[in-house]
């Protein structure tokens, strides 16, 4: 059984991560418990962040909001400020697993896992969020669009931990939607997911798409859809998404099926965002 460390501040946490053998950050901790039960985790040291102050705040910034890494996912779904500033994020976080997991799992831990099927990254990609990282050597910020490096691999370096995610406010007049398609039970993991954000700025209209579960990492693409109507926007979105789709086959579907489903998710997300815009 690994040793549990409960640092009382960020510096102590960073020191522990730098100095301990085989340390692992314990955020929400649900996944680590699963690994322990499977008998697969041989981490020597767990660094629990639950007693580190200052990691659970949701604060307004000049450009949007800053969310502490230990903020439970469920707060993203229920917090009025989040819903007001970044409604796409609020909607997407509400799709993760079930309320109990969302009460426990943390915003930082969620992206640190880097799973390609996670819901939140799709919205964070579309919203151009930044990930704030800290280590004994200091702090740095990584755009979420550069954060997911490869299958299960993120930009988090050894000794680093995620302290916050900064999400720029969703632009005025924008419209958005998140679509999650599962192929087994209705509440299963997504087999394909897409977050669509339609933004009109300086006379140009842009569709920003985050797609999940369809490639080794969550993918992002931005399409200029100025002057497009709904149908041509849908076609443009699918054309832009198609080359990014590189599915991993599993019990939930083959490559061919997931590829097909991915384009449906993109189309559905665009149509819903379009409708969202018309409703406003």
């Amino acid at each position: 059984m690994p040793v549990l460390h409960q640092p009382r501040d960020l510096d102590e946490a960073c020191t522990l991560l730098a100095e301990l053998d085989d340390p692992m950050v314990y955020g929400g901790g649900t996944a680590i418990q699963i690994l322990l039960k499977q008998g697969l985790l041989f981490a020597e040291n767990l660094v629990d962040l639950s007693f580190v102050p200052g990691l659970t705040a949701i604060e307004a910034t000049a450009t949007g909001i800053r969310v502490g890494a230990m903020t439970p996912l469920r707060r993203m779904e229920t917090d009025a400020q989040v819903a007001g500033v970044v409604p796409l994020a609020a909607a997407t976080y509400g799709h993760v697993a079930n309320p109990r997991v969302r009460n426990t799992a943390s915003v930082g831990g969620n992206i640190a896992h880097g799973d390609y099927r996670l819901d939140p990254p799709t919205a964070l990609l579309a919203l151009d969020a930044q990930v704030e990282l800290r280590s004994a050597h200091g702090q740095r910020r990584v755009p979420v669009r550069d954060f997911f490096v490869d299958f299960q691999l993120t930009a988090v370096e050894h000794g680093e931990l995620i302290t916050a995610i900064e999400i720029p406010a969703q632009p005025a007049g924008s419209a958005s939607s998140y679509v999650k398609l599962s192929s087994l039970g209705e509440n299963d993991w997504p087999s394909a997911s897409a977050a669509a954000l339609l933004v009109t700025e300086a006379g140009r209209r842009t569709l920003r798409l985050g797609i999940g579960a369809l490639a080794p990492i969550p993918q992002f693409v931005s399409v200029d859809v100025s002057g497009h109507d709904l149908e041509t926007t849908v076609e443009a979105a699918k054309a832009a998404a198609d080359p990014l789709i590189d599915p991993i086959p599993d019990v939930r579907g083959s490559v061919t099926y997931k590829r097909r489903l991915g384009l449906v998710a993109v189309e559905d997300a665009v149509r819903r965002a379009w409708k969202d815009q018309d409703d406003d």
Partner: peptide, 23 residues
């Protein structure tokens, strides 16, 4: 044992938690 069925649910400070995954 993996937070997926809800049989171990408890309310912790008013919030539902899967106690099978909670230290």
């Amino acid at each position: 044992g993996v937070g997926a069925c809800g049989a171990c649910t408890v309310l912790v400070d008013g919030r539902s938690v899967s106690s099978c995954l909670a230290l």
